[in-house]
């Protein structure tokens, strides 16, 4: 039964996952970018900055695509709208994270 502001019970959990998943992907991507930059640009110099940039370049498109998957969810309920917007905001944020690395390269 669908009440006002509601979704059928069986749809709630998948939509909730669609709200949270993009944000979690953003978090994982951010940690990876930060770790890559730290590995390349700190004193220990674990990896070459080129490889750090390449790593970010490689993981960013799938991460952004995976995050944006929720945006194709149809439906007019508030929760489904939340899933779409969470996807859009998170995908944009992933691209923002990667942009400096891709545009600048090196450690700056």
């Amino acid at each position: 039964m669908i009440h006002k502001n509601g979704l059928p019970s069986d749809k709630l959990l998948p939509v909730l996952r669609d709200i949270l998943r993009p944000a979690l992907i953003w978090a994982a991507h951010f940690v990876l970018v930060y770790a890559a930059l730290s590995a390349a640009c700190a004193q220990r110099g674990l990896i070459d900055p080129f490889w750090a940039s390449l790593l970010v370049l490689v993981v960013t498109p799938p991460a952004a695509l995976w995050a944006i998957v929720g945006a194709r969810r149809r439906g007019r309920s508030d929760f489904e709208r939340a899933a779409r917007w969470s996807s859009i905001i998170s995908a944009l944020a992933i691209l923002f994270n990667a942009a400096p690395v891709v545009l600048m390269g090196g450690c700056g």
Binding site: D78, I89, A93
Partner: peptide, 19 residues
Amino acid sequence: FGYGFAVAAVVTMGFISFG
């Protein structure tokens, strides 16, 4: 207005604010 927008914004803000 936009309960869904607000929920999405709050959740994503909760994550992004750690970056």
